[in-house]
Amino acid sequence: MVAGRNSVVEALRSAVPAATLYVASRIDADDRVREAIKLAGERGIPMLETPRGELDRLTDGAVHQGLAMQVPPYAYAHPNDLIDPEAPGIPLIVALDGITDPRNLGAIVRSVAAFGGHGVVVPARRSVGMTASAWKTSAGAAARIPVAQATNLTRALEDYRKAGFFVVGLDMEGDVDLPDLDLAREPLVVVVGSEGKGLSRLVRETCDQIVSIPMSSAVESLNAGLAAGVTLYEIARRRR
Rank of each mutant, 00 (worst) to 15 (best):
G225S: 14
L48I: 15
L188V: 10
A156P: 06
Y76H: 10
M1D: 12
A227Y: 05
V147R: 01
V94M: 09
P73M: 14
E186G: 03
M47D: 03
A184Q: 09
P46H: 03
I145Y: 01
L92M: 12
S14F: 14
S194M: 07
R13N: 05
P123H: 10
P146T: 02
L105K: 04
R43I: 11
S217F: 11
G225F: 09
M215A: 06
A77R: 05
Q149P: 12
V109G: 07
G117N: 01
V109M: 12
I235T: 09
G193D: 01
E10S: 15
T50M: 11
D81R: 03
R5E: 07
R161T: 08
G225L: 07
S7H: 05
V211A: 09
V190N: 00
A95H: 00
G225K: 06
R185W: 08
G41H: 04
V121A: 02
G140C: 02
K38S: 15
V23I: 13
R5I: 12
A163T: 06
G41D: 01
V219Q: 05
D30A: 04
L178D: 06
S138F: 01
V219D: 01
A36E: 01
V63N: 12
V16G: 03
M47F: 02
D31A: 14
L170Y: 06
V2H: 09
H78F: 13
A150K: 00
M172Y: 03
Y74A: 13
G129I: 14
A148Y: 02
G164R: 05
A3W: 13
Y22S: 03
R201F: 08
A141W: 02
R110S: 10
N104D: 08
I235P: 12
P214L: 01
E205W: 07
L96E: 03
A132N: 11
L21D: 02
R204E: 10
V121C: 02
A113L: 10
E54I: 15
P187K: 11
S25I: 09
D30L: 03
N80A: 15
V71F: 14
A77T: 04
Q70I: 10
I235S: 13
G229E: 14
M172N: 11
R103A: 12
